[in-house]
Write a protein that binds this DNA or RNA. Structure first.
Lengths: 249, 249
DNA sequence: CGCGTATTTGACCCATATCAATGACTGTGG
DNA sequence: CCACAGTCATTGATATGGGTCAAATACGCG
């Protein structure tokens, strides 16, 4: 993948219109004029190396971000100082919806690999959205949809076994990649086993063991952080196995 | 079963200004003029009896609702036709945020007891919010905050034991009641043990046993669906006991 | 190339799902 | 107002998924 980031300081006006992710960011039926206005408020791209943080927990909310390339994770430390991975951001994902309400970012956001992002000052976006109903609705829908999907996902996970949780998780990742035009069967997921465990409420040992079990069943092939899904139907069957235990026949 | 149209004749103009819940619905710094405009778009209240449904899953989204009295639950049936309790609505809660994105309601909503609600046509609310930044921001913040809180809650639950999950859940309920000016120590929760279990990803037996264990430790007293929290500090300690198992010393 | 970190694998056992049966409420019709 | 039916809650016995501890190996980064 070549460098999708335009040169800093060059014409930013057209950057959204030419972005390969525009279908994910922009309302589909915005006029070129309106899209131009939106493009004009986008800051110059942000670039992060692996392990660099984009945002610190509790920082004041001012910007939304869109992931252009790479991936990031959100870490939230609760009152008891236990740190959890609470979100994963892949190309095309918006970062910051969860900060609008509280007024500050609810977690630290760290790049899992070299990544680039667009930065949108929320103030301008908000002013623009009051004049453009289409944009306002797109934004509202995006916020609501993103958060709702996550909510459903989490509820599903609560009552599932480790086997089903992980399958459900991997299929979700695969689907994200597919929607963005990447392969759903083969991808690199830059999270460690421990990060995946934290995100799913499992230990890293269980994540590893479950992946090994999948491989033994020819459901997928994993090498480090490279995943090849071999039997998506089989994984879907596992992911949707109802309830916590298999009821014995 | 569903009868959302049931109406109670009432002057609607001032109903928001005089509502005991207005601090939860209305932006704090809205002028009387603006609040009047908002009050004018509120439909006549909806009244439901126990077990009546307010909304069927997949119905087209048109209204937001605010719970005035009573309580309701959201049931979501997934692809595998397993039904989960995915939300609980108490007085002051807004219903429908999760429908804005998809354009339809993601679950059936059923009254747990006799309840009354305000109905807000989203279209008018949206038009009004484009003219009133204060209202727009209040709405955005509310949506974002509500969904974010739920997200955090669910992530916390994922890695907790049944004991901690239930304590965490009950304290959350208590806090909701407290914020609305009710007692945090004594309340009635109209959910069955099975509903609570579904919401938390536990079986109804485990919910019951865990409640019994709490009672044995003098942490609370339960009789049917009446809850008396006796030792909130103790419950908080349980709720925040880190990780899934108590690490042995 | 070597150190620190991530991953894998194994042994053990506890929390909790499952299965089962009984008792307490709730509401309905005679 | 009582009897009955259906739901809900309680309690017990049992099996097992997966967390905990431990240690060896592989990997990636400086």
């Amino acid at each position: 993948m070549s460098n999708p980031g335009k040169e800093v300081g060059e014409s930013t006006v057209s950057q959204c219109l030419s972005c390969y992710l525009k279908a994910l960011c922009l309302p589909p039926d915005l006029s070129p004029d309106q899209a131009g206005a939106l493009g004009r408020i986008v800051d110059t791209p942000v670039r992060l190396e692996k392990r660099e943080s984009l945002i610190e927990q509790k920082a004041v909310f001012r910007h939304l971000f869109v992931v252009r390339t790479g991936s990031l994770k959100q870490l939230t430390t609760d009152a008891r100082s236990e740190m959890l991975v609470t979100a994963l951001y892949l190309p095309g994902d918006m970062i910051g919806f969860d900060a609008i309400g509280p007024g500050y970012y609810p977690g630290t956001i760290i790049a899992l690999e070299t990544s680039s992002l667009c930065r949108l000052p929320f103030q301008y976006l908000d002013e623009l959205s009051s004049r453009l109903p289409i944009l306002r609705h797109h934004l509202q829908r995006n916020i609501s949809k993103t958060m709702q999907e996550e909510r459903v996902r989490l509820h599903q996970l609560l009552s599932r076994t480790a086997e089903a949780r992980l399958a459900y998780f991997l299929l979700g990742i695969a689907d994200s990649f597919r929607r963005r035009g990447f392969s759903a069967r083969h991808f690199r997921l830059a999270l460690s086993r421990a990060d995946i465990g934290s995100y799913l409420g499992l230990t890293h040992e269980t994540v590893g063991r479950t992946l090994a079990a999948y491989q033994a069943q020819q459901l997928l092939y994993v090498s480090g952080r490279d995943y090849h899904l071999l039997d998506i139907v089989g994984l879907e069957r596992l992911a949707s196995s109802t309830g916590r235990r298999q009821k014995r026949a």
